[in-house]
Design a protein around this nucleic acid. Sequence first.
DNA 1: TTCGTCCTGGTA
DNA 2: TACCAGGACGAA
Length: 278
Amino acid sequence: MPELPEVETIRRTLEGVLRGRRIEDVLIRSPHCLQVDGQPCEAHAFKGFLAGLWVSGLSRKGKYLSLHLDDGSTLLVHLRMTGRLVYRPDGGEPDRHTHVIIKLEGGGEVWFSDVRKFGRLSLYGPGVAPEPLGRLGPDALEGGLDERCFHGLLASSRRAAKAFLLDQGCVSGIGNIYADEALFLAGIHPSRRCVSLSEREAKVLHRAVWEALKGGIEHGGTTFSDYRDGFGRPGNNTARLRVYKREGQPCHRCGNLIEKTTVAGRSTRFCPACQPYD
DNA sequence: TTCGTCCTGGTA
DNA sequence: TACCAGGACGAA
């Protein structure tokens, strides 16, 4: 599941090989993932938009990756759960999950693949701000979300802390893995109501979110099966996880067994001793 | 605010 | 063979 650390790792790995490159051609093997201005579009329209443009840079907000093009348009990529964006210097034979191949002038290709077909490639024309980015709350790492602002947002919400962290309109970039990890680091039960958190707890959670995400980036993201960086390499953060997918195993901090429950409709792991509800 | 939907591979 | 995983979005 590409969350903020995984998307940021992809951005960093792809930036060096894409910046300043011209898109020579676009091979579309399955058009289901294509959009223009947020609406499904035909393969030829998508290809007509993109071919011939130069990549001027890559940026990220939340879990969205933006490829900025020289005419001012944007290719907005969301990998959802199983999407991959991988640079292949020598091309090769794509498998059946590879839906789009962007061929670069002078050699090299970028493959978009996605087993579950949830990911999307959305084109926005010159000067058009991608609408999905406008719906996002501040980026959890680089959005200038200070402690006071974070506490203010929490204090006005009656939802479970985990539901808040997962809501991209509140803070963007956190998914199921890093929400569980941050709540563990903060010692906060995932079902605790936001409004019940003290200013000190909010401060600790703010720091824990930062720590979980930063650590994820430093270790190249978390790979369980699908995630790969821009060069096709798995991440190294998996062994560092404290609770995610560790139910039934002892807590590294106290030795009690990690439990699994459902919060906000999502599987949720936590340590009942380190993260008491009361 | 919660639930269903999309989608397919892996697992029980 | 049935169920589970889950990000975003629309509906209830």
